[in-house]
């Protein structure tokens, strides 16, 4: 049993994972570890395999080589999917004319848990209100989702992922289409979720500049894993890292909070 307790500290463990859709590998020999309570920024250019790696983690794709453990259990045996919240890249490309309130959208996060032929109870509704509160959107509970800004909608989708009380939250490019100012607020909120509510976070992004102020760990991915360590070590070797990752020199400016200045080419 003691052995098992040791394992529960590990939220994600990926060993020597390789994956290809057709003949070319998009991920090669990835070994990655996320401990409980970490806030990992997974960065890499577009097409670097970030989203594919997440799909493997969620069991949507099966890697050709290597193995994955979630919460200390091999993926094949893993059944605690309600412990994982996932906000996909496509979350904010929904039909924005859809007549649904913030409350209704967030309650969808409980539907899987509630099961067939059952309805929301008072307790469930309470959970929905709490999740909306956590992302500071209580003032908009009965507002149509289509009337909110991109940043606000993104918060609602986070709330939907939070409502089932996940231990791990995976966010795939959550800040695409969100203005710079809202992005900062958004990251601050994520940091709070991580520190105050103890939720392990994995944030996938190609925008390195903004993220490094908030995350505890960084992993750089471009088919291979180029860096994996804490944020301080990352910032020390950042310039060197970026040129390996993106294939040419990228000058990172200092982290004054003007993040528009340190954008990274995404080709």
């Amino acid at each position: 049993m003691g052995h098992r307790h040791q394992l529960t500290d590990s939220v994600i463990q990926v060993n020597h994972l390789s994956f290809k859709y057709t003949s070319q590998y998009v991920l090669e020999d990835i070994t990655l570890h996320v401990r409980k309570g970490a806030f990992l920024g997974l960065v890499g250019p577009n097409g670097s395999g970030k989203s594919t790696l997440v799909k493997c983690l969620l069991g949507i794709q099966t890697p050709q080589q290597g193995d994955i453990s979630l919460f200390g259990e091999p993926l094949k045996k893993f059944s605690g999917w309600d412990r994982i919240g996932y906000v996909s890249q496509k979350a904010n490309s929904f039909n924005s004319g859809f007549p649904a309130t913030v409350f209704e959208v967030v309650s969808m996060g409980l539907y899987g848990k509630i099961g067939l032929f059952r309805f929301l109870t008072k307790k469930h509704k309470q959970k929905v209100y709490e999740a909306i509160e956590k992302v500071e959107m209580s003032a908009y509970t009965n507002e149509n989702i289509g009337n909110l800004s991109g940043g606000q909608q993104q918060r609602v989708f986070i709330a939907r992922a939070l409502v089932s009380d996940p231990d791990l939250l995976i966010l795939d490019e959550p800040t695409v289409g969100v203005d710079v100012h809202s992005v900062q607020q958004f990251y601050t909120m994520l940091k709070q979720l991580n520190q105050e509510h103890g939720i392990t976070l994995v944030l996938i992004t190609h925008d390195i500049g903004a993220m490094t102020d908030y995350v505890t760990d960084v992993a750089c991915l471009n088919k291979h894993l180029h860096f994996h360590g804490d944020t301080d070590t990352f910032t020390e070797s950042e310039n060197e890292m970026m040129s390996t990752l993106y294939g040419h020199d990228v000058h990172m400016l200092t982290h004054n909070h003007d993040h528009s200045a340190c954008e990274v080419p995404t080709s």
Binding site: W81, S88, K90, A91, N95, A100, M108, Y111, G112, R160
Partner: peptide
């Protein structure tokens, strides 16, 4: 009976499938 499933699938098919609808 299937209000939840119909609603979720209409709104966001990908996420609904992940949630087991």
């Amino acid at each position: 009976l299937f209000y939840k499933e119909l609603f979720f699938l209409s709104f966001d098919e990908e996420q609904a499938i992940i949630s087991g609808m």
